Amino acid sequence: MLNVYTDKKFIEKHSKGEKFPLIYALLFDERDEFPEIKNYYQLVESIDEAEVAFLPFSWNYYLNKGLQTEAERFIDECHAKNLKVLTYISGDQGVMPVNKNVYVFRNSGYKSKKLRNQISFPAFFKDPLVHYIKKENHQVRVKAAKPVIGFVGQATPNLLKAAKDIGFIMYRNLKFHLGKTRLEPQQWFAAPFMRYKYLKRLEKHTDIKTNIIYRERYRAGVRKNRSVDKTTYEFYENINDSDYIFNLRGAGNFSVRFYQTLAMGRIPVLVDTDCLLPLEGIIDWTKHCIRIPQGKEHEMEQRLVAFHEHLTQEKFEQIQKANRKLWEEYLTLTTFFARIHDLLKNDEI
């Protein structure tokens, strides 16, 4: 178990701020969703008892609220005690940390622009086999002659929307360079338009069976909880009824769908846009997904068909089971931070 120090006084003053996920699990888990996390970490009151420190809120919160001096004060206090400080960047775009001598966890970002101490971590969500798909309705897929690839989400040929998406990115990037925003510049990328382009290619391929539901807007534009749940059920049912799931980044350079696919025991087809996946030194991602490298997007259909054709039924089943197990053992909030615990204990972070 690791003794963790955090800035509790700051948390008391800013209880509504966006918390580091581990700090949330340790201090604010009122529904007891993460009971096992306390087998790995315990919060201590005194910095002298600590083995590691966590900045309690996201860098986004400190910078947006003009509280970076508070973050620096905490970091300096911890570094004076030779403690590693782990921090968090939230959101699709992210911000640049003020202090470069800390460890930074984030979902998005570009592998080619990775910070020295940046650690990619997965998206966290409810277990779909507990909340959305009955286990008796979830079976290991039998290998058919053609691969079945699914997708539910925002994908549209609307050129006006694509122009608006790129224009907004250009505007935000300009604001960054003018010092008007702290959100990091992004590559010009109209995700819904590009998804539509790739999905239509998959539909046209005679050796691929598709299971695709196009949405004009995110979650079909619904906002109320009951409607959101309905679209979530449809989303997971689509994954359940497919062998492979198409994955392409959204507003940020990462895909929540990628991890949801693994949680469902299906195989992601990831269009790699300079992505940084979690625990790359520990997980051999080539065993769990079809990763289409940048510059090779035109080979997606060929790679999918070849991958499927070379699988035996036994191997096909093994990958599905291995993907579900990977999510359970490495990619939930508890199991991911259990791995981080081990790396910290072994001084590998």
Rank of each mutant, 00 (worst) to 15 (best):
H138L: 10
S112V: 06
E77N: 12
L83R: 02
P147C: 08
F54L: 14
A71R: 10
V130L: 10
I166P: 02
D7P: 04
A263I: 05
S242P: 09
A163F: 14
G221D: 13
V44Q: 02
Y330R: 09
R73Y: 09
T181N: 00
K135A: 06
M96V: 10
L270H: 05
K126H: 09
D92N: 14
I133W: 02
A338Q: 11
I149K: 06
N173V: 12
P21E: 02
T231Q: 13
K111M: 08
A251T: 13
Q154S: 12
K146F: 07
K38D: 00
I208Q: 05
V152H: 06
Q68W: 06
A162W: 07
E33Y: 10
R106D: 00
G153N: 08
T332R: 07
R106E: 01
D272Y: 06
E72V: 15
E234W: 06
H79N: 10
I340E: 01
T6D: 03
G167E: 06
G153T: 11
Q42G: 08
F57H: 11
Y236N: 07
N240S: 11
I340C: 00
G66P: 08
D76H: 11
W188V: 07
R303N: 11
D284P: 04
Y88V: 03
Y24K: 13
D342P: 00
V256G: 04
Y132V: 10
N240V: 10
Y214T: 05
P122L: 07
Q42Y: 04
E136G: 01
S120G: 11
F337K: 04
I283P: 02
A80N: 14
V4S: 01
K135C: 00
A162E: 06
F105A: 01
A123S: 13
L160V: 12
Y5I: 15
S255L: 05
A163Q: 10
I169E: 09
M264R: 11
K113D: 13
A306F: 06
G153Y: 03
G179W: 09
V44R: 01
P278E: 05
R195H: 03
E36V: 02
A144W: 03
T261Q: 08
R303D: 13
I208P: 05
S255D: 15
N101F: 04
M300P: 05
A25H: 02
E36F: 08
E309L: 06
P293S: 10
Q320K: 07
K9I: 10
Q93Y: 08
A25L: 01
H138G: 06
A306K: 15
D207R: 12
V102Q: 02
H131F: 13
L174F: 14
K65R: 13
D272C: 09
E45F: 01
Q294D: 11
V148A: 02
A162V: 08
N238L: 09
E51P: 07
D48E: 15
G265K: 11
L159W: 11
C78R: 05
L174C: 10
I37P: 00
C78Q: 05
A53I: 11
L63W: 03
N240Q: 12
F189H: 15
